[in-house]
């Protein structure tokens, strides 16, 4: 069977559900962030796959580049918040954090 659009979509679906599983079940907020990265990557794979199989439409590539930029900004801000929370609580379990400052 020739590799077509569906193959890439299946990979992206599995990646998305793994990311959802990571976000829902992890307690550590950095691991929640990693699950988020998996989900963003699966969205990027969809963009690029559809772009390729619509005759190399370049708009999917540009959307992917914007997603990568936003992921970088999001990770920077999220890690800054996590470091601040660690200074206050001395742990980063998302289950037990209910205040942003003391």
């Amino acid at each position: 069977m020739e590799i077509g659009l569906t193959h890439y979509l299946v990979v992206s679906a599995l990646l998305f559900s793994l990311g959802v599983f990571g976000i829902v079940t992890r307690k550590n907020s950095i691991l929640v962030l990693m699950g988020l990265e998996l989900i963003l990557n699966s969205a990027n794979l969809n963009f690029i796959a559809f772009s390729k199989f619509k005759g190399l439409n370049i708009e999917g590539h540009i959307a992917t580049l914007f997603v990568i930029v936003l992921a970088a900004a999001e990770v920077a801000v999220a890690l800054a918040i996590i470091l601040n929370i660690y200074q206050n609580y001395h742990h980063i379990d998302v289950d037990e954090i209910n205040k942003l400052k003391e």
Binding site: V11, L18, R26, M34, L38
Partner: peptide
């Protein structure tokens, strides 16, 4: 991709 994503999770 899939196996290492499983490793992450």
């Amino acid at each position: 991709v899939i196996v290492s994503a499983m490793g992450v999770v």
